[in-house]
Amino acid sequence: MTADSIFSQETVSLTVSCISASYGRCQVLKDISFHAHAGELTGLLGPNGCGKTTLLRALCGQLPYSGSCLLNGRPLEGLSSRQLARQISYIPQRSGIGISLPVMEVILMGFNPVLGILQQPSAGQKALALQALKAVGMEAYAGQDYQKLSEGQKQLCILARTIAEDSSLLLLDEPESSLDFPHRHQVMRLLAKIAGGQVLSCTAGTFPDSGRTPGAGSVPVWNDLDNRPISPKTALITLHDPQLALEYCSRLILLKDGVCISILHPASDPVPQMEEALSEIYGPVRLYTPDSSGKNENCGSGRSSNEDNLSSRNRNEDDGHKNRRLVLLPG
């Protein structure tokens, strides 16, 4: 297990048990149960209308549900919306910021759950916000108008806000859907790092990765301004594109008609089993596992051993790839 191998302990942080929810008389979620682990991305896959977004909204407290949901051992149900906001960062498909604001102001919104209603962000929080912007490589845009950014840049800003928020559960609703190809991967890589706590890694080097010189996206150094404990985050993410999900998520929850039909671990599950599960959602599909060095493995033939998988993960870690490479094609 990927997460286990990194933190060498079981890090189940989100336990969803038997969640059901309905819009009026129409039941949209039926007895959904799963675990999600801190430090990794958990993907929610399913056809349109399967209840992905509904599940996120239920977890956000925006839709009443039955069943229970534990975050780090504490139930989410009893929390006020303000307490929920402190625990959860919600990242929509595209941010609903409709007026011109400096990018910096958008990042500072992330501190609202911990600020009093009449309170202003402190100088320390402003410094943190700037650090978060640096982490996504957008510090040059701090004073610019958020509305004038491209969709990709906007999404990076929202991720910077998420970094600033530093809440333990991230809920992302198709964060990639409005982005172009390079931005999709950039955003997913960044997300993986945020979830892994790597963006927050301090100079002392708690994690072995942090000292390395990274490849594509530079991993910024967090100056640990407020001595916050650096924690991996649980990230639940609905994805439009199963290919991205296979590439970046450690765990995939497959939903169909409001029911959880299977849970996949792209790093370790047998390819035919995954093929079968994915076919339930996307129709007949085939999974290839091209060798990372370029030579193709045949579909279904190769079951990577745990060892192979681990080495592959290590090789790709810097740019956020956690899994062996899998290519999904219509069958």
């Binding site: 929920l84 609903g96 910021i97 919104m109 809920l171």
Partner: peptide, 14 residues
């Protein structure tokens, strides 16, 4: 300013 943000997002911003 926060009220100008889309409702569910604003709610999750506390």
């Amino acid at each position: 300013v926060l009220l100008s943000v889309e409702e569910s997002e604003a709610r999750m911003l506390g």
